[in-house]
C-alpha cells in the first residue's frame, strides 16, 4: 500500500521553476531517499509534502487521502507528517521529555509520559528526560529530534539532510542505528541528502533528482549498476559510458552505448582481449591502493588498484564485458 503519492508536481520559486513534473510513490515501511546536489529542489519538495509551500500544479495524497490538489489544501498541522531538520531545531527552552511530548498535547499526562518513555527507549536515550538541548551532543540531539517527530505516530516522517551536521565518524554509526530504529518501528520515511554513500546505505529506493526533475528512481543497486543516462553517471561518478562506434567494435560490442562501472575496469601493461589503450594522467596515493585517472582519447576514467604504474605511462584498460550494461 502506498503511504504517499505525488502526481506531476510543478512548483515555482520567484518565477523560477524549481520542481517540474515530479511523480512518485512511497510504500508503507519504506525508506525513500531523495538524492541530489544542493539547490536542486530537494528541500522545496519536502516543504511541499509537509504543506509549507504549495505547488502550482499536481496532487499529493497521504494514505489515499488527498491533502493537496487544485481544490484541496490541508494545513500542515493536519497532515500528520513528522519532520526532522538538518540542524534538528529542538525547542531550546524545553527539556528532552517536553520536546518529545510537545506533539502529544491532546493526550493525558500519563499517556504522554508512557509514550515519551517508549520513544526514549527506542532511540536509546533513557535517563536524558530532564536534560536540555544545549547539554546534548549532535547525535543525541538528532535522536531526540527523531523521537519528537515520531511521538504523535505520523503516517510519514520527512528528514532533511539529517546527518550533515554530525561528525563524519559519528555519521556512519548513526546511519546504521537510525535504519534499525526505523525498520523496527515500521516507519515510512523520506530523507533527503546530497551524499550518495548515505543514500546507498540507508535507502530502500532512491529518487535521483537534478534541476527539479527525477533522473531515475530505483533501488540502490539499480541506480548504481544500471544508470539510465549520462546525467546519472555524471552525478554518481561511478563509471563511464562508451558511445564511440570504433571503441565499441574494438571491444566487440554491439553499436549501442554501454555503461561500465569503474569496478569492472582494470589496468594492465600489455595489450590483450577487451582492452583499450590509454595514458595515466593523475596518480593519488590512498594507503592500500592508488587512484589512477586514465585518459582514453577524451574519455576520463578512474580506477583503483594496488598495482604500480607511473604518471604519463601508456597502459591498457581491460573491460569486464559481463558487467557492462546497454543504455
Amino acid at each position: 500500500m502506498n503511504v504517499l503519492e505525488l502526481e506531476s508536481i510543478f512548483q515555482k520559486y520567484e518565477d523560477k521553476e524549481v520542481l517540474s513534473d515530479l511523480t512518485f510513490q512511497v510504500e508503507k515501511g519504506e525508506l525513500f531517499c531523495i538524492l541530489g546536489k544542493s539547490g536542486c529542489g530537494k528541500s522545496t519538495l519536502l516543504h511541499s509534502i509537509a504543506g509549507f509551500t504549495n505547488p502550482y500544479q499536481g496532487s499529493i495524497s497521504i494514505n489515499g487521502k488527498t491533502v493537496f490538489d487544485k481544490r484541496t489544501n490541508i494545513a500542515p498541522e493536519k497532515r500528520n507528517i513528522g519532520l526532522v531538520f538538518q540542524d534538528f531545531s529542538l525547542f531550546p527552552h524545553l527539556s528532552v521529555k517536553e520536546n518529545i511530548e510537545y506533539g502529544l498535547d491532546t493526550k493525558s499526562s500519563a499517556d504522554k509520559t508512557k509514550r515519551s518513555c517508549e520513544l526514549l527507549e527506542l532511540v536509546g536515550l533513557q535517563g536524558f528526560e530532564s536534560k536540555f538541548p544545549n547539554e546534548l551532543s549532535g547525535g543525541e540531539q538528532q535522536r531526540v529530534a527523531i523521537a519528537r517527530a515520531l511521538a504523535p505516530s505520523p503516517e510519514l516522517i520527512l528528514l532533511d539532510e539529517p546527518f550533515s551536521n554530525l561528525d563524519p565518524d559519528k555519521r556512519i554509526h548513526l546511519r546504521a542505528e537510525i535504519k534499525e530504529i526505523f525498520k523496527k518501528a515500521g516507519i515510512t520515511s523520506i530523507f533527503i541528502t546530497h551524499d550518495q554513500h548515505e543514500a546507498f546505505e540507508l535507502a530502500d529506493r532512491i529518487g535521483l533528482i537534478s534541476a527539479g526533475k527525477f533522473l531515475q528512481i530505483g533501488t540502490p543497486e539499480e541506480i548504481f549498476n544500471s544508470p539510465v543516462n549520462q546525467h546519472v553517471v555524471s552525478f554518481l561518478d561511478n563509471g563511464i559510458i562508451i558511445e564511440d562506434a570504433k571503441k565499441l567494435s574494438e571491444l566487440q560490442l554491439m553499436n549501442t552505448p554501454h555503461f561500465f562501472p569503474y569496478h569492472s575496469l582494470s589496468l594492465t601493461h600489455d595489450k590483450a582481449e577487451n582492452t583499450l589503450q590509454g595514458k595515466i594522467s593523475r596518480k593519488v596515493f590512498q594507503g592500500d591502493h592508488h587512484q589512477y585517472s586514465v585518459m582514453i582519447d577524451t574519455l576520463d576514467l578512474h580506477i583503483n588498484t594496488a598495482k604500480q604504474f607511473d604518471l604519463n605511462q601508456s597502459i591498457f584498460v581491460k573491460f569486464d564485458l559481463e558487467k557492462a550494461k546497454k543504455i
Binding site: F52, A75, P76, F91, H93
Partner: peptide, 29 residues
C-alpha cells in the same frame, strides 16, 4: 525561525497555537 515553527506545525499545532504554546514561552526570557 522557520524550522522550529515548521516543526511545531508538523506536530499538529495551528499557527495560533504555535504562537501561544511555542513562540511566547520561547521568547519569555
Amino acid at each position: 525561525g522557520e524550522q522550529m515553527i515548521f516543526a511545531s506545525r508538523s506536530l499538529g499545532y495551528s499557527p495560533m497555537k504555535t504562537f501561544l504554546k511555542l513562540i511566547l514561552p520561547y521568547s519569555k526570557p
